[in-house]
Simulated scan of single mutants.
Amino acid sequence: MPLSQDEIDDLATRLYEAYDTKEPIPPLSDDAELTTEEAYQIQFEVFDRLSAAGRDDVVGHKLGLVSEAKQEQLGIPEPIFGYVAHETVLENEPIPTDEMIAPRIEAEIGVVLDEDLEPPVTTTDVLTATRAVVPVVEILESRFQGWAIPSAQDVIADLTSAGKVIVGEQHRDVTDLDLKMEGVAVSVNGEVEATGIGADIMGNPARPVAWLAERLDDVDDHLRAGELVMTGGISAAIDIEPGDVYHVEFSNLGSMEIRAE
């Protein structure tokens, strides 16, 4: 049975309050069976409350569940997406763990678009429209107790686990890289803890961007020139502890050193 608008508003309020107070809550699916469309309605409502200008003023988009294994695990046949707010981007500053519930770190390949993308969109279209490829570190966050993720719909509603974003200084032309073979290693206090490669992202990081361009049409939106698209984690997420130092080294996109406080 579809949720009423009042029920959607109530669930969005729960998530918004968890984000605002930093007090985690049980997953929404404990009390409601959400469709994917309803989960996105909740996400958009929460984002519009959190961001001063709402979805009209964003850095770009983020993708999640970009591997078949994760999709099968959470019972959804496609990736998921969310918005990246300007205020979540960290500029030459440490990870503020005291402002977060249970942050985790992962590395991603980002693309900055040089032109709008509207359906139909292919992987080749994405590569043609890409102004630059950039290294990205995402600080994931969950508003659910103990990082409980019983369903993809819970993750979608919870801003696709959005927390903070760090964009590296290295910008490379897409023609200078093989996105499929771009690798990364994430070290914690000098010890390598996670690795990954671009081919883990649906075979090519440009593929989920093409998917996103098509999917946004369903919510009356599209990818715009100048936007950043985070193509999904290519390394396993690592719990963040205050005082730890994280070194993220890409094959061709440079390295980033980030401290948690």
Rank of each mutant, 00 (worst) to 15 (best):
L34V: 05
L34Q: 00
E38I: 09
A39S: 14
Q43A: 12
V46A: 07
D48L: 14
R49V: 02
R49E: 00
L50K: 12
S51H: 15
S51A: 15
S51M: 14
A52K: 15
R55D: 00
R55A: 06
R55H: 09
R55I: 04
D56T: 15
D57N: 15
D57E: 10
V58D: 05
H61N: 12
K62I: 02
L63M: 06
L65R: 03
L65W: 03
V66S: 07
V66R: 03
V66A: 09
S67A: 12
S67L: 10
S67N: 08
S67Y: 05
E68W: 12
E68T: 11
A69V: 03
K70N: 13
K70Y: 10
E72Q: 14
E72V: 09
E72T: 12
Q73K: 11
L74S: 08
I76V: 13
I76E: 06
P77H: 11
P77N: 15
P79A: 09
F81N: 13
G82K: 01
Y83D: 10
A85Q: 08
A85G: 07
A85F: 05
A85V: 11
H86W: 14
H86N: 13
T88P: 00
T88S: 14
V89P: 03
V89C: 14
L90G: 03
E91G: 05
E91S: 10
N92K: 15
E93P: 01
E93V: 06
I95Y: 01
P96I: 12
P96Q: 10
T97V: 06
T97H: 01
M100K: 00
I101N: 08
I101W: 04
A102C: 07
A102W: 04
A102D: 09
A102N: 10
R104M: 01
G110Y: 02
V111Y: 03
D114P: 08
D114Q: 08
D114I: 07
E115K: 07
L117N: 04
L117I: 08
P120D: 07
P120L: 04
V121M: 05
T122C: 07
T123L: 13
T124F: 13
T124Q: 12
L127P: 08
L127T: 09
A129C: 09
T130Y: 04
A132K: 13
V133K: 04
P135Q: 07
P135G: 11
E138V: 01
E138R: 05
I139H: 01
I139T: 02
E141M: 09
R143D: 05
F144P: 08
F144K: 07
Q145E: 14
G146N: 03
I149E: 07
I149A: 13
I149H: 08
P150E: 10
P150S: 12
P150R: 13
A152M: 11
Q153G: 10
Q153A: 14
D154Q: 11
D158T: 06
L159C: 11
L159H: 06
T160Y: 04
S161R: 07
S161W: 02
G163T: 04
G163E: 00
I166S: 01
I166A: 02
V167G: 02
E169N: 13
Q170H: 15
H171C: 14
R172E: 09
T175I: 12
D176E: 15
